Simulated assay, not measured.
Amino acid sequence: MSQSPLPDAAPANWVDAYAPEPLKPWLKLGRFDRPIGIWLLLLPGWQGVALAKSYADLPMTARYWWFLFAFLVGAALMRAAGCAYNDIVDRDIDAKVARTAGRPIPSGQLSVAHAWEMVIGFSLLALLVLLSLTKAAILLGVASLLLVAVYPFMKRITWWPQAWLGLTFNWGALMGFAAVLDGLGWPAALLYLGGVFWTLGYDTIYALQDIEDDALVGVKSSARRLGGRAAQGVMIFYVLAVASVVGAGVLAGLHWAFYVGVALYAAHLIWQVRRLRLDDPALALKLFKSNAWAGLILLAALFAGGF
């Protein structure tokens, strides 16, 4: 029986359009029908590589192309493993929320045992990629597992699970920097901090889709906590994100082109807030997905700052 696209997937996504029917539940479990999550996990890693290259004034050799490819593969694998793990933990909640009830586990298409197979298998593949990086990056990659393991429980104990997601999703900024220089520095720390605030903003927008269902099932979120002040909250988070990134550029001694790019990055974030409507879930999803472009703009700025 043909499966329908999930509510937060594009109607013409490649999984529903082209994947064989037996594979669709597996691909949906890993969110391959919604690639925005791969972008948002990948881009901080690429940004860390770009910042380290520009900071150390290094030429663009084949080594850096490998780092970019390794982070792409690693992000796709770990995002899928993380989503499967998240769905194992949240299966009872997902069954009660309209947007998530059709996911493979709550809908009965896959079992919890199947999901654990994806978690373990994809994590092992990601480990092989991780082992190709520097010692510092490997240690950081192993440390990230604690953030990943705890994240699904945050919505049960704090109003700010989006902040923990920021800590988790932007860990790649530290890893990317460490992959190039085999160590960390204050520019990497500020880039990471900026990413945490960026995620806190865009995931608050994302959480607006579920605000009513979350209230019914008792799930906490920054969107619920901020209520009618969500737009103001997102603006504050984005201002802090831009300020942190500017600080990273100053400490790294980046050139003027970086600041031009950051101005475009800031303009994109302001555009999101100006368009935001608290009672329009479809628009919230669209604005959330636009953060792939925001991240790419910042990536270009970090590379440009080293030329």
Rank of each mutant, 00 (worst) to 15 (best):
V260T: 15
A263I: 15
V234N: 05
R34H: 07
A241L: 00
A98L: 13
L23F: 08
P59S: 06
P11D: 05
W256C: 07
I205F: 01
F67Q: 15
E117D: 14
W116Q: 02
A248M: 11
R91T: 11
L43Y: 04
G227E: 04
M235Q: 15
A173T: 05
Y202S: 07
L278H: 06
G141E: 01
L184K: 00
G141H: 10
R34M: 06
L299C: 08
G45Y: 01
V180H: 03
G261T: 12
Y206W: 08
A231M: 02
C83E: 00
D33R: 07
W65M: 12
A241N: 12
D87N: 11
F122P: 07
M118W: 01
A10Q: 13
D279H: 00
D182S: 06
L131E: 10
D182Q: 02
G45C: 10
A300M: 14
V119N: 09
Y64C: 07
M154P: 09
L42T: 07
L140T: 06
A179G: 15
G45V: 10
G247D: 05
A70T: 06
L298W: 05
N170W: 02
G74R: 00
K135G: 12
R63F: 15
A284F: 03
Q109P: 12
T168G: 01
I297T: 15
F258E: 06
A252L: 14
A70V: 10
M60N: 12
F197Y: 04
W65Q: 13
D213C: 08
P11H: 05
F303S: 10
L226V: 13
G306M: 04
L278R: 02
A284K: 03
D182R: 00
A98R: 13
A179F: 01
A163V: 02
L296H: 04
G253P: 11
A19Q: 06
D210L: 03
A126D: 00
I236S: 14
L130W: 02
A70F: 12
A263E: 05
W116R: 07
G166L: 09
V73R: 03
D214A: 06
L200A: 09
G305Q: 01
L254P: 09
L124S: 07
A252S: 12
R275V: 12
L43T: 05
W293V: 15
K289G: 11
F67L: 15
A98I: 13
A207R: 00
T204D: 02
L58M: 04
A179K: 05
I105P: 08
P5F: 00
S123N: 05
S123R: 09
H268M: 13
L131Q: 11
L124V: 15
L200Y: 01
A230I: 06
R274K: 15
P106Q: 03
L191A: 08
D87M: 02
W39Y: 09
D8W: 09
G37L: 03
P5L: 11
L131I: 10
L147W: 05
W271C: 14
K220E: 03
R275I: 13
R224V: 08
G261W: 02
D87G: 14
A223R: 04
L200C: 06
D280L: 09
L216F: 11
A75F: 06
M1N: 12
R156V: 12
S54C: 13
A252M: 14
A115H: 05
D94K: 01
A70R: 03
W171P: 10
M118Q: 10
V73N: 07
A115L: 03
V239T: 14
P161Q: 06
L226A: 14
F177D: 03
